[in-house]
């Protein structure tokens, strides 16, 4: 059984149908990427998974359990964490306070401490700045913090919404290397990206989303070699 599975999901904003029946699955241990242009419905897909939007039709299941009947905060307890678009850090709290809130759902003190060390190991920059107000971090550091905070919940499934947005190429590289590391340490990843090249270079499989519909689904390698993908998303002629 797939870890996460969406079947024929229709999501609406008022009368606007943002998702027109999408189906996808993520297996345990995978990195799956969802690529598409602006407004394709990538964020909407993640919001539907995390319970912020209730689909009008279709099912979202995590290990066979229907997620749509839970509230957003309950879904966090199921082991799903999201790094939201635009990072969504608590700008007026310190780095350490942000990370601490990431572990809100847990009360195993030892485990939290361990994970904090792990986050600081992944992002040494955060450790140096742990008492700094998060709003004053650079864009890249904020992204690291957002990822680190999501990890503090020790999720089994991590949803990332455009982690490369607004970052310099070196930093994008660093963030993507870290995503691979996180995955190797056992976290399943659903990665939403516009930067298709980077996303497809680390993912196992991918989906291409266009105006609320999935138009392609294949292994990352096949997608990289797909003519349409190359033209539209990789900027190759």
């Amino acid at each position: 059984m797939a870890m996460l599975e969406l079947k024929d999901v229709h999501s609406f904003y008022g009368n606007i149908e943002a998702l027109k029946g999408i189906s996808l699955y993520v297996d345990e241990g995978e990195i799956v990427t969802l690529i598409g242009a602006n407004g394709a419905g990538k964020t909407t897909t993640l919001r539907t998974i995390t319970g912020l939007i209730k689909p009008r039709q279709g099912t979202v299941t995590l290990e066979g359990e229907d997620l749509t009947k839970f509230k957003p905060h309950e879904i966090v307890y199921k082991g799903v964490s999201m790094v939201p678009e635009g990072r969504g850090i608590f700008a007026r709290l310190t780095v350490a306070e942000n990370l601490d809130l990431g572990a809100y759902i847990r009360n195993d003190k030892e485990g939290i401490k361990e994970d904090l060390e792990r986050v600081y190991e992944l992002f040494p920059r955060l450790k140096e700045r742990r008492n700094q107000v998060a709003g004053t971090l650079s864009g890249g550091e904020q992204q690291m913090l957002a990822i680190g905070r999501a990890l503090m919940a020790r999720p089994r499934l991590l949803l990332l919404d455009e982690p490369s947005m607004g970052l310099a190429p070196v930093l994008v590289e660093l963030i993507f290397d870290t995503i691979v590391d996180i995955n190797k340490q056992g976290t399943t990843i659903l990665l939403v990206e516009q930067n298709a090249l980077m996303a497809l270079s680390i993912a196992h499989r991918g989906y291409v989303l266009r105006t609320g519909e999935i138009v392609l689904a294949d292994s990352a390698e096949n997608l990289r070699n797909n003519e349409m993908v190359q033209k539209t998303y990789l900027g190759m002629e």
Binding site: T50, P72, H73, F90, L93, E97, Y104, I105, N107, A153
Partner: peptide, 24 residues
């Protein structure tokens, strides 16, 4: 307390607080 932290997170940003697993 833990509740105090939840209040603080909610004050900063309700949506993100919810994404941390806080019951608003």
């Amino acid at each position: 307390s833990r509740l105090g932290r939840a209040w603080m997170a909610m004050r900063e940003d309700e949506d993100v607080a919810e994404a941390m697993g806080i019951d608003l």
